[in-house]
Design a protein around this nucleic acid. Structure first.
Length: 645
RNA sequence: GCCACUGUAGCUCAGGGGUAGAGCACUCGAUUCGUAAUCGAGCGGUCGUCGGUUCAAAUCCGACCAGUGGCUCCA
């Protein structure tokens, strides 16, 4: 069945290429692959079933994955030519590109990368067809006798009747499911990007392979756009903007912990305040200690499962390292819950805290503000009855998504189930997963399934936001926990006057303020909405003559609760405008003779671009508008508008 | 923690066995300016740290520290 409704009847085993040829010879030249009932396959894999048949050309987004997968093979072909000793691992297509893993005696250098790319261009010029063959496991093993990694992969095929496919392009053969483009000549616009180490099969106990990353596109402009996008993303990088906007810094004396400048601290505190404000009504804020004896962690299970990540402190009296900085808040919240008897009437009970946490992250895992050793979460623990789970999850989800929305952020949802390393019995996990999933589905939102990705004490829903480089970061989370109430013997008194076991939900919204700020910096490219930046308004007198008037205007703004400052330096207006713009100040108010006489300011709005026509607004009116923007936490800047009100 | 790369002035970077460089920032002076960097002068670095090779090391080699990109882990 073709998209136009026509049908072709072919025998099973017919090659898609033949079907495409029957439609048109020209189409065959443009075809990259075909889609049969939504499944993508290449032109040289025999058809096994009929169905909706669609020819994929360079215009179809699904074809890109096929191209990139083939690009990985071309890369391997080139590497094998220049480094015949290289053993091949896996080489899939990924978002925006592809990679291939190799096991080699000595790692690749950047020079090698250039040589491989040049060799790839030769392989492309040679236009080797991708030839698919289907063999049994025994024959397959013969073909890869010299490739131990491929042999290990073949160990997974235990059925002797299994059909295994191989693809050959010129001198290179790979164990591969496909699909592929018809020949290596289809690959035109590509670039190798970098090398990296990667554990064989993602297992840190196995040997480290050398991975080469690359990108490939159908059109030259697409490749150029992609490379341009990478450059632009770097300009948004929160580490760079953090320095340029003078928000925070890092120092080798405390790797993984941020030093917040005066400006950065202002932003940080504003976010904490905002977060606190949104939770004032429905959550109870508490504070608990930072240091604990190991007894608490033994009770919670962290001592066994999480000790590697905890900073241990020497107890001078015992001479033992049996005190630790808390890496999580949960156990301390349970302590406070345990201090009283609770009625079913109190539930759900929500404890929230902003305490500082420390986690001893691996040095190689640290990254700017997104992965640090010291941070604060807006961490909440809800104690509730089992029958309240669905309502509570909905409440928390609405809260989290509403919070993101107020920043213009959107998150993707993940449902993560039991990991291998876990506490609690399977029956408990069955109940927890079913309960959380039901609550999640009741909200009707889309989500991705992440099997085995749950916390060691329970399944969770994660809220991910991506940074400017496309890396996903977990911000919010909702984690269901049946284990902790057991371990800590938590209880409440029910309607029946008997003791019952509550359920605990762990919840974070920002993930951590550190990570959240990183995401916000990149999301706004450093240009925060009016309520958030350290400096909201900068007032610039044109000459010394207006300096006293400008100073008085700043005073009025500050009294109105606006973070305004004066720039009356002996520099040209041009210079001061440029600097204010570089610091991404929302408004720059110029005061010249005309404005001074009329009690006005000429407002330059951030983002309006060079050569904008500054708007004269009365000082009182401008203050009123900025205040309104701050109070509503508006995401756009409009206080500079000239409209007469 | 593992693999690769990087580390030169506060920032961005050039230099690459033989006297340490630029622009910006900063300080001072001049300029008082109508919208995206005014001119001049000055200050500022034992070239990440420690060791080795060498007549001589910022430069070559090694270890360590930190950062970057990945892997593993993870808010």
């Amino acid at each position: 069945m073709l998209p136009d409704g026509a049908t072709r009847h072919v025998a099973p085993g017919t090659l898609p290429a033949d079907v495409v040829r029957s439609i048109g010879e020209r189409l065959l030249g443009a075809a990259v692959a075909v889609s049969v009932d939504g499944e993508i396959q290449d032109l040289m894999t025999p058809l096994r079933k009929g169905g909706a048949f669609r020819v994929l050309t360079e215009r179809d987004p699904e074809a890109l994955g096929v191209l990139r997968h083939s690009a990985a093979h071309v890369l391997a072909t080139a590497v094998r030519r220049l480094r015949p000793d290289a053993k091949i691992g896996f080489g899939p297509a990924i978002d925006d590109g592809f990679y291939y893993d190799f096991e080699v005696a000595s790692p690749f250098t950047p020079d090698d990368l250039a040589a491989f790319e040049a060799e790839m261009r030769k392989v492309v010029a040679e236009k080797y067809p991708f030839v698919r063959e289907e063999v049994g496991p025994v024959e397959a093993r013969k073909r890869f006798v010299d490739d131990p990694l491929k042999l290990e992969r073949l160990d997974d095929f235990t059925d002797p009747n299994e059909i295994i496919s191989t693809y050959t392009d010129g001198p290179f053969i790979d164990l591969c499911r496909g699909p592929h483009v018809p020949d290596t000549g289809r690959l035109k616009h590509f670039k190798l990007l970098n090398t990296a180490g990667a554990y064989w099969r993602g297992d840190e106990k196995r040997q480290m392979l050398q991975r080469i990353y690359g990108t490939a596109w159908f059109k030259k402009e697409e490749l150029e756009q992609y490379l341009y996008r990478l450059e632009e993303a770097k300009k948004r990088d929160h580490r760079r903007l953090g320095r340029e906007l003078d928000l925070f810094m890092f120092h080798p004396f405390s790797p993984g912990s941020a030093f917040w400048t005066e400006r950065g601290t202002t932003v940080y505190n504003l976010l904490v305040e905002y977060c606190r404000e949104r939770q004032r009504r429905d959550f109870a804020e508490i504070r608990t200690p930072l240091l604990y004896n190991k007894g608490l962690w033994e009770l919670s299970g962290h001592w066994g499962k999480y000790k590697e990540n905890m900073f241990l402190v020497l107890d001078n009296e015992t001479g033992e390292h049996d005190i630790s900085l808390k890496p999580m808040n949960c156990p301390s919240h349970y302590m406070l819950y345990l201090a009283k008897r609770h009625s079913y009437r109190e539930l759900p009970m929500r404890y929230v805290t902003f305490d500082v946490l420390h986690r001893n992250e691996l040095t190689g895992a640290l990254s700017g503000l997104t992965r640090v050793r010291q941070f604060s979460q807006d961490d909440c623990h809800v104690f509730l009855r089992e029958d309240q789970i669905a309502d509570e999850v909905k409440f928390l989800m609405d809260f989290i998504l509403g919070y993101y929305e107020s920043f213009g952020l959107t998150a993707t949802l993940k449902f993560a189930t039991r990991p291998e390393q876990r506490i609690g019995e399977d029956a408990m996990w069955d109940r927890a997963e079913a309960g959380l999933r039901a609550a999640l589905e009741a909200t009707g939102r889309e989500y991705a399934l992440k099997p085995g990705d749950g916390a060691f004490y329970g399944p969770k829903i994660d809220f991910d936001v991506t940074d400017s480089l496309g890396r996903a970061w977990q911000l919010g989370t909702i984690q269901l926990d049946y284990a902790a109430p057991e371990r800590f013997d938590l209880s409440y008194v029910g309607e029946d006057n008997a003791e019952h076991r509550p359920v605990v939900i762990h919840r974070a919204v920002s993930g951590s303020f550190e990570r959240f700020i990183a995401i916000l910096i990149e999301h706004f490219a450093g240009a925060f909405p009016t309520w958030l930046p350290p400096e909201q308004v900068r007032v610039l007198p044109i000459s010394e003559e207006q300096a006293p008037v400008a100073e008085a205007i700043v005073e009025r703004m500050v009294n109105a609760g606006i973070r305004a400052s004066l720039d009356a330096r002996s520099e040209t207006l041009k210079y001061r405008i440029a600097e204010g713009a570089r610091m991404k100040t929302p408004y720059m108010c110029v005061v010249g003779r005309r404005e001074a006489e009329a009690d006005q300011v000429a407002v330059n709005t951030r983002g309006a671009g060079e050569g904008q026509k500054p708007a004269p607004v009365s000082v009182d009116e401008f203050i009123r508008r900025v205040r309104a923007e701050i109070d509503t936490r508006a995401l756009t800047l409009s206080a500079g508008a000239t409209a007469t009100l």
